[in-house]
């Protein structure tokens, strides 16, 4: 086997891959946005006094976490139309990946919320703060710093899972690299570039998460 790297081909495909990177970032960002909000809803609904709701949400989270993401993507995209829900690859992909990661993030939030000392709840009671204000103003701001490391991990995780969306034809990085490969029969350059691009995006993301965690802790006065 010969290892021949062709620079002219590399420069030729780079613009295509870079524009696909935008799609990857968009997919990861939108999916993460869904996951952040939905995850909080899942975490909070497990803390209500309604036993049945808690049980259903708990089982839902376990179900999502114990089945493969790619299956969930297929399910939304291919099974959806059979029950009358017809969605574009992009929408299906966002829903599937957002749902998948919301289950994981709900566990992160759950841990964070549990880490707030019981005395804080008692202080809120003693001030007659409503449940809503207790959560928004006192509990969640204190739970947040404890959640940050986990949230950051899943941000990098969701980024690395976006190639899964290529299976239903979302034109993100992996999908584009595959297309280049099947057009030109050259796989070395596109796949290598995809790897490098992921590395270039992931590393600063992890750093940014760490910096923003420190910033939030300082802002909240908790170290």
């Amino acid at each position: 086997m010969m290892f021949d790297w062709r620079w002219d081909f590399t420069w030729e495909i780079l613009p295509r891959l870079i524009s696909a990177t935008a799609n990857t970032l968009l997919a990861a960002g939108a999916g993460y946005g869904i996951a952040i909000v939905l995850g909080l809803v899942l975490a909070l609904s497990q803390r209500t006094p309604y036993r049945l709701l808690t049980l259903v949400v708990r089982e839902f989270v376990e179900f999502i976490r114990s089945t493969p993401l790619v299956l969930q993507i297929f399910f939304v995209f291919f099974v959806g139309p059979q029950i009358g829900i017809r969605l574009s690859p992009w929408t299906s992909g966002m829903i599937a990946i957002g749902l998948h990661y919301s289950a994981y993030l709900s566990e992160v939030y759950r841990g964070g919320l549990n880490s707030v000392p019981v005395g804080q709840w008692e202080a809120c009671s003693a001030l007659s703060l409503s449940t809503r204000k207790t959560y928004w103003r006192i509990i969640i701001p204190q739970a947040l710093p404890a959640c940050f490391a986990g949230m950051g991990n899943y941000l990098v995780g969701i980024l690395k899972d976006t190639p899964m969306l290529s299976v239903i034809g979302v034109a993100e990085l992996m999908h584009t690299a595959n297309a280049i490969g099947s057009e030109s029969y050259r796989f070395l350059e596109p796949y290598t570039l995809v790897g490098i691009i992921f590395l270039l995006v992931s590393l600063p993301t992890a750093g940014l998460v760490r910096i923003s965690e420190m910033w939030v802790r300082r802002k909240l006065g908790v170290y």
Binding site: G119, A123, A126, I138, Q142, V222
Partner: peptide, 27 residues
């Protein structure tokens, strides 16, 4: 009724003044 606790239970993300203002403003 007001209550003070053994372990104070002040809100750590608020200043002393904000701690005192929380109840009057929010409740």
């Amino acid at each position: 009724i007001g209550m003070c606790f053994q372990h104070f239970n002040l809100f750590p993300h608020m200043t002393a003044l904000q701690n005192c203002m929380e109840g009057p403003v929010q409740v």
